[in-house]
Amino acid sequence: MKLRYLSLGAVALGFVIGGSASHANADVPGGSGCEGSAVWLEDGLTIVAETDGGPYTIPRSDTVRWEGSVTDAPGVYSGSVTVELPPPFGEVEIDSWSGDSESTSNSGEHEYDFPSLVPAGVEFSVNGEHIDENGGCSGTIAFEIDGGPFDSPIAPISLGGTALFAILTGLALKPLFMKVI
């Protein structure tokens, strides 16, 4: 599962690292002049990290060609990709990186296939952050997987839980609904 989220995180902002090269990033607040883009090869979706935060609807499986760069040699760098959860749970880190590099760009392709348990149509925000010797930058992109709620078995389970606890709550509060003599 982590690897599948990793693929999403990787394509999300072009926050991708590989080998000794630095990774892509959004040209958003910060001073490293980060840039990143991703193209979904089958779907045709193109995201340029610095232009729009979404939400983007992505296919459940595809191959993403990504590329990213920083303006100057990063030197010692680190960064992470996280998915935002409801408060107070904060964020869950799906990928992180660190190293020492003089390369200013990187690119590659990544194939992903989310399992059916990952619900479609749910908007989730992916944050990316990169820090190197020239500064840092960060960005957020919102995604949802193409499809309807019943593409995942989670939705019927959740509806069943709602019905079950509605009945149990009604029984527990039965005196409230009974006519007082």
């Binding site: 998915v83 935002e84 959860l85 409801p86 408060p87 619900p119 149509g121 749910v122 908007e123 989730f124 925000s125 919102a142 949802e144 709620p149 995942s152 989670i154 939705a155 959740s158 509806l159 839980g161 709602t162 606890f165 509605a166 149990l168 709550t169 527990a172």
Partner: peptide, 24 residues
């Protein structure tokens, strides 16, 4: 029980796209 009911209602709202996952 009401807390669990509302937890499932919140999950339904997220799963049906009414609320984003990171909504308060």
């Amino acid at each position: 029980l009401t807390m669990l009911l509302m937890l499932f209602v919140a999950a339904d709202l997220v799963l049906f796209g009414v609320l984003p996952l990171n909504s308060i």
